[in-house]
């Protein structure tokens, strides 16, 4: 098969993968082709399937249980915090994490995220526009320490090249919030590479979960980095810092492991 044939075959298998109709031989073929660097995929086929399903289902009357609606509204409350000053404003916790970012790359990423999300709120907002309340990572960490009842803390140990660094990580399963405190981690050039945190939680997935990309701007001192996990983590067994390409990666090859913290 030439390159075009291979790409066409991979595309068809990917469609079958999304539709859930691959037979065992096709599954093996799909897995093999997925490793071929020529066979790059994005989410466009899956988004198409989702768009189709949403289009066909949008006008159906699903008879949504009232109890479920109440559960959803109650669940939502865990993700907003009241601002005592004016009482009327709610702020998603995710925003708080963005806003507690330190200067440098985190702050830029936060501003960009705020811009793009805010842009989507112009007509049909996904969530209420948050109040912009600036907090420091240090203060946010202290708040977490004070309020979390299930806090775990682990010490980071640097690998050979990073043996001079030290640090700790704290994490709350209940609040899905955590912070790293990193000392003497070398500054990185964000245009060349960035640090990325991985959370190892074998109970939910054998692959480590992305804990966020971050930069270190100074070679000295201690920096507090908020953990940014888009996926839920329920029982972290270890936290691993790697050095990756700018923007981070979906799956780390762990070519440069910087530090490791194991949960006790």
């Amino acid at each position: 098969m030439n390159d075009q044939d291979i790409l066409s075959r991979f595309e068809e298998l990917e469609a079958g993968h999304i539709l859930g109709d691959l037979d065992p031989d096709e599954i093996k073929e799909f897995e093999m082709l997925s490793l071929d660097p020529r066979c790059q995929s994005d989410l466009s086929l899956e988004l198409t399937a989702s768009a189709l399903e949403a289009e066909f289902l949008k006008d159906k009357d699903p008879d949504l249980p009232k109890k479920l609606l109440e559960r959803l509204r109650k669940g939502m409350e865990e993700f907003v915090v009241d601002e005592p000053e004016d009482g009327a404003v709610v702020r998603p916790v995710a925003w708080q994490r963005l806003l507690v970012a330190p200067q440098t790359g985190w702050a830029m990423a936060a501003l960009l995220a705020i811009f793009f999300v805010a842009k989507s709120f112009v007509e049909e907002p996904l969530v209420a526009r948050p109040a912009l309340v600036v907090n420091t990572p240090e203060a946010a960490r202290e708040t977490l320490v004070a309020k979390a009842g299930d806090l775990i803390e682990s010490k980071f140990g640097g690998t050979e090249r990073y043996s001079q660094m030290s640090g700790t990580v704290i994490w709350s399963d209940e609040l899905q919030e955590g912070y790293m405190s990193l000392t003497n981690l070398p500054a990185n050039d964000p245009n060349a590479n960035q640090y990325q945190l991985w959370i190892v939680d074998p109970a939910r997935d054998e692959k480590p979960v992305d804990g966020g990309v971050f930069d270190i701007s100074t070679n000295d001192g201690t920096v507090i980095i908020p953990i940014s996990n888009p996926l839920a983590v329920t029982n972290p067994q270890a936290f691993v810092i790697t050095l990756e390409q700018p923007g981070g990666v979906v799956v780390s090859k762990q070519e440069v492991v910087v530090a490791l913290a194991k949960s006790s």
């Binding site: 949403a54 993700f79 969530v127």
Partner: peptide, 19 residues
């Protein structure tokens, strides 16, 4: 709620993303 900040309306509609 956890991933809303990653949503980019330029890539897909809200209903497609949530779907």
């Amino acid at each position: 709620w956890k991933s809303a900040k990653r949503y980019d309306p330029a890539i897909a509609s809200e209903s497609t993303f949530i779907g």
